[in-house]
Structure formats: structure tokens, C-alpha cells
Computed example of a mutant assay.
Amino acid sequence: MDPQHLRPAGAAERRRGVLFDVDGTLVDSSYLHTLAWWQAFRQQGHDVPMASIHHCVGMGGDRLVDSLLPQGRDRNADAEILASHAALFASSWAVLRPFDGARDLLAQCHFGGLAVALASSARTQDLLATRRALGSDAHIHAATSANDAKASKPAPDILVAALEAVGVQPSDAVYVGDAVWDMQAAAAIGMPAIGLTCGGTTAAELRDAGAAEVYSGPRDLLDNLQSSAIGRLLTASSAGG
């Protein structure tokens, strides 16, 4: 998807919004994904260190596999690895939990007049499971998954799809994520990004990848919301400009 397809809205139609990654940002699932990938690789005879896997979590599954396995491998087994990861992660759906402050953060953005969208590289089924764990559908205007994009993060396709779904321009939005891939995807379309370290990525890594601000998690961001990039959107939205 080309960001140039997002046409400027008229002044009367101008809307502002916040896009959120889900895994590792709103829901404590990054390490569950890491373990599921590790087991899926082992089933196909690949011994990939968990630290390497965790670094790639947040990419789409196809990119993650391609980044971690030798380029000269037999790629016929890739589909089996992806299917195994999906099944293994699904076994963790029942224990998914939102981070402290995640629900309140979504509600505050919603009640402040911002469009709220989830922009995740997850499969549709996994996104539904994390949304059930969040229990915040009343405060979410739209959600996009891997099925809504030709290319996964760090490509910006999923973010563009989410922006289109809520009718918001990149310059009128902020993306919140926990991985370097989130920061890079936002930078590709000129959208400010806020990094959260609760997914296991350091503040230095997030800043190096383009994060404008970094917080420890949803609660920390919520506690500092008015002085954050989201706070500036809230102020502009309430002013009607």
C-alpha cells in the first residue's frame, strides 16, 4: 500500500487518532510468541536461540522465519513452521493478559475524541484472542491484522490500512508499539511513534529505531499522557482545529 493514497481531508472532516500494536504493547504475549516459535523451529530441526527469536517478534511470521533461518534452506518446511507456531501460540490464548493500564489507556484516548485502531501483524485468529483478553472493544474503532496487508512489518502496509479504516492522516496520528519493527513501520509513512519497553525491547533500541518517546508500559504512558505525543493530539482534538 502506498501512503500517498491517503488523501488530505477537508478541515471540517479532520480527525486525529492513535494506532496501537497489540502483542507486547497492550497484551503481555511477546515471550509466549518467542516460546511458540522456538518450539516450532525445533520441530523442524532448527535450533534457534530464544534471544534471536525475541528480537524478531513483531515482524510478520513470514519475515521472522526468513530472518532467522539460513537462506539456502529447503523452504518447503516454512509453511509447517508457521502452522506449528500458530497452533502452539493458540494453546496460550487462555492465559493472555493485558498489561496494567492498557484498558484505561484505550478508554482515555477514546473518550478524548481520538480514533483508536489496532494495527497488528498477528493472524486474525490471534488478534481476536488478544482482543478478548483486552476486553476493550467498546473503545476500539477499527483493527487490522496480517490479512489486511500485502507486506508485514517493518513495511508500513498494516499501519496504512488502519489509518484508512479510521479516516486519519499519518500526520494526525501516533503509533504505539514495543518493537523496533513498529518504529520503522511508522517512520516509513512519517508518523510519530511511541515505544514501550514492556515487550522486552530496550529504550535505546526503540529510540535508535525512531521512537519519539519511550515509556515502560501502558500505565506509564497513561500517567504521562498529557505531556506525550498523544496528549498533543488530545489537545488539538478538543480545540477542534
Rank of each mutant, 00 (worst) to 15 (best):
L233V: 10
A86G: 04
V176Q: 01
T144L: 01
A193N: 01
I194M: 03
L196M: 08
H110W: 05
I81A: 05
L35P: 14
P154T: 13
H55W: 15
A149R: 01
N76H: 04
G200K: 05
L82D: 15
R219C: 09
G61N: 07
R207N: 08
A40E: 03
T130N: 02
V57E: 04
H33V: 15
G231S: 11
D148Y: 12
N224H: 12
G17H: 01
D62H: 09
V95C: 10
L163H: 02
S145K: 03
D28K: 02
A86K: 04
C56W: 10
S91A: 13
A102S: 10
P170C: 14
A236E: 11
P98R: 08
Y31I: 01
Q39E: 15
D66T: 00
R132H: 14
F41M: 05
Q169T: 09
M191L: 09
G241R: 07
R131K: 14
H55L: 09
A229T: 15
A122Q: 06
G200Q: 05
L88N: 06
A151Q: 02
L96C: 14
A236W: 15
S52G: 10
N76I: 14
S145F: 08
Q184V: 04
S52Q: 12
L96P: 15
R97H: 14
V18N: 07
A204W: 05
L163F: 08
A151W: 01
P49T: 00
A11V: 06
I230N: 00
R14N: 11
G210F: 07
A155I: 15
V176A: 03
A212I: 00
L221G: 01
V160A: 07
A117Y: 00
D137P: 06
S238R: 05
L35A: 12
A129V: 10
A11P: 03
A40H: 02
V176T: 06
